[in-house]
């Protein structure tokens, strides 16, 4: 059923057009009040991420403190979520308490996803049981690239079911999908299978999030919304390190999907070092002094 739908309805992506449009949108400049507003929004939309082998409970606790109060002594809002590996969900949950910051966890044998479906679903259930509010899953790239789109669809649908009340973000890992057509096809499959968010990358593969890839995904969300009236969220992740980059993404969201998507409920940044750069720029706007990251805590 899925295979039939995708094959018949999907138009191919105009590669040159997408890249030109992304380049044009990123040449805009935002100053002063609008810049501050955009940067604060970027903080509120951030999934502050730490996905390292060396993550310890202590590191995650300090990450959580930073997530709740990004810049002590200021009115910068808290971030949207903290994104960690499943074994650290309970630590993050305890540290965040009722702050309103969500706990997101990467499940389904992130980042490769190379495990039996039953094992992946089991990990999702365990992670949700441990208290995760949001699950970031990876799609089965080897099935997708082999052309078995129905299997990809079924697995995402099974994960969605395993998530229960937790939100599901589906990572396409666009760096491995090679073409924009594939990105659009994978986006469609994920959306149709019940994803709450579609997400570009794990951050473990280069290229990670890029503006043209994000544009293709945003346009897929838009087309789906026009067809069905159902909103789906978007999360670019990996390689977004500067405040300037973040503003470019926000411009693209506003131009493609409109103001309704300019909210942490519908758009997120997956990032670890981006937060400090945004804080530096906010402080620069507040004080008129170029700032130094020596005065900020580690990401």
């Amino acid at each position: 059923m899925t295979r039939h739908f995708v094959a018949s309805q999907m138009r191919t992506v105009d590669q040159v057009g997408v890249e030109e449009r992304a380049a044009r949108l990123s040449s805009r400049s935002i100053k002063k009040g609008a810049k501050v507003q955009g940067l604060r929004l970027a903080v509120a939309m951030m999934d502050l991420t730490s996905l390292e082998g060396r993550d310890t409970a202590g590191r995650i606790q300090s990450l959580c403190r930073k997530a709740m109060v990004p810049l002590p002594g200021s009115d910068v809002p808290h971030v949207a979520a903290v994104c960690v590996y499943p074994p650290l969900v309970s630590v993050a949950k305890r540290a965040l308490g009722r702050s309103g910051v969500h706990v997101a966890a990467v499940a389904t044998y992130f980042p490769s996803g190379q495990a039996q479906l039953s094992e992946r679903l089991d990990e999702v259930r365990r992670t949700v049981a441990a208290g995760a509010d949001e699950i970031d899953m990876v799609i089965n790239r080897n099935a997708f690239l082999a052309g078995d789109h129905a299997q990809v669809f079924d697995e995402i649908a099974a994960c969605k079911e395993a998530c229960g009340k937790a939100h599901l973000k589906v990572i396409l890992e666009t760096g491995e999908l090679v073409t924009y057509d594939n990105v659009r096809r994978a986006s469609l499959i994920a959306i149709e299978a019940g994803a709450d968010f579609i997400k570009t990358s794990t951050g473990k593969v280069t290229p990670a999030a890029t503006l043209p890839v994000t544009l293709v995904m945003l346009e897929t969300i838009r087309d789906h919304y026009i067809r069905t009236g159902k909103m789906v969220g978007m999360k670019p992740a990996g390689g977004i390190r500067t405040a300037k980059d973040a503003l470019r993404y926000l411009i693209m969201v506003k131009e493609t999907l409109g103001d309704a998507w300019l909210s942490p409920d519908w758009f997120r940044f997956g990032a670890s070092t981006l937060l400090n750069d945004v804080l530096l720029q906010l402080e620069k706007e507040r004080t008129g002094r170029y700032q130094s990251d020596r005065y900020l805590s580690l990401p």
């Binding site: 008129g288 002094r289 170029y290 700032q291 130094s292 990251d293 020596r294």
Partner: peptide, 8 residues
């Protein structure tokens, strides 16, 4: 002035 103000 910008150099003198620069925190880095």
């Amino acid at each position: 002035p910008h150099a003198a103000r620069h925190m880095d």
